[in-house]
């Protein structure tokens, strides 16, 4: 089933290490410790999500109805596929098939761009629908307009005191909380995707130039771990943000 990687053990060895085995394992442990901090990094947002969903279950349900489930599902598929191609890129790096590695990285990068593109469309929709907290959030206004057109005779938006909180303060803050968390979580995730793309670009350039430091496969494995981690985060974001049951 599995084959063994054969590389001269003293090649690409930093001076502080004794041998390549030690160095490879150090890279791995280092990356995993870094990923454990990343987990806690996102963790603070996940716990905020949990607390507010616990406090405002209706608002979260109402907020999630504005999500485009189709786009979310497509994005999950895109990211899972990019994870596959990234895994293959690492595989070819281990086997030292440089051009295959480059090919897989390029595909991964395009998938990542695709993910961001879909995200861009989704964010754009939120802007148009006045669902961006702190910028143009008008949840209530929408409801109100609908109502005013039909039944209610009373103008119910109170005038705001000068110098008080911004205009969206007079609305259903609970639903806004859903969108704050939505943007915080997907935003932080998107930042990670962008960082991933930047690193991939550097790798591709260096690989094409056949730079010695990327001939060593561990940096590529680190990139792979990072990218799979980004994928794992999204695996949880997708049901939490898009598929909230009643």
């Amino acid at each position: 089933m599995s084959s063994q990687l054969v590389q001269p053990s003293e090649e690409y060895l930093w001076e502080q290490y004794e041998d390549r085995k030690q160095q490879d394992e150090s890279y791995l442990v280092g990356m995993w410790t870094f990923l454990s901090t990343e987990i806690m990094f996102f963790g603070a947002l996940f716990i905020s999500y949990a607390v507010y969903r616990y406090k405002y279950p209706e608002a979260f349900y109402a907020g999630h109805e504005y999500m485009n489930v189709a786009l979310g599902t497509i994005n999950t598929a895109v990211l899972l596929t990019s994870s596959l191609t990234m895994a293959l890129a690492v595989h070819f790096a281990q086997k030292r098939k440089r051009w295959m590695q480059i090919g897989m990285l390029v595909i991964t990068m395009f998938l990542a761009f695709g993910f961001l593109g879909v995200k861009f469309v989704e964010y754009g929709d939120k802007f148009r629908e006045h669902l961006v907290p702190g910028y143009n959030f008008e949840w209530n206004q929408a409801n109100v307009n609908r109502l005013e057109a039909s039944t209610a005779p009373i103008n119910i938006i109170p005038s705001l005191k000068a110098g008080s909180l911004p205009a969206d303060s007079a609305i259903s803050h609970d639903a806004q909380m859903y969108f704050i968390i939505y943007f915080a979580m997907t935003g932080l995730h998107a930042i990670h995707v962008i960082i991933g793309i930047l690193i991939m670009m550097v790798f591709i350039v260096m690989l094409v130039a056949n730079h010695p430091s990327v001939r060593y496969h561990m940096p590529m494995e680190m990139l792979g771990l990072y990218w799979h981690f980004v994928d794992i985060v999204w695996i949880f974001l997708y049901p939490l943000l898009y598929l909230i049951p009643r």
Binding site: T37, F41, G43, S48, P133, G134, H173, A184
Partner: peptide
Amino acid sequence: PVIAITLALVVLERTLHLGIFNPAYG
């Protein structure tokens, strides 16, 4: 990382007037 993201949320709250810790927004 937990305090990093928490303080980052405070900054977002200050600059963008979000309300993740502000009772005026729930």
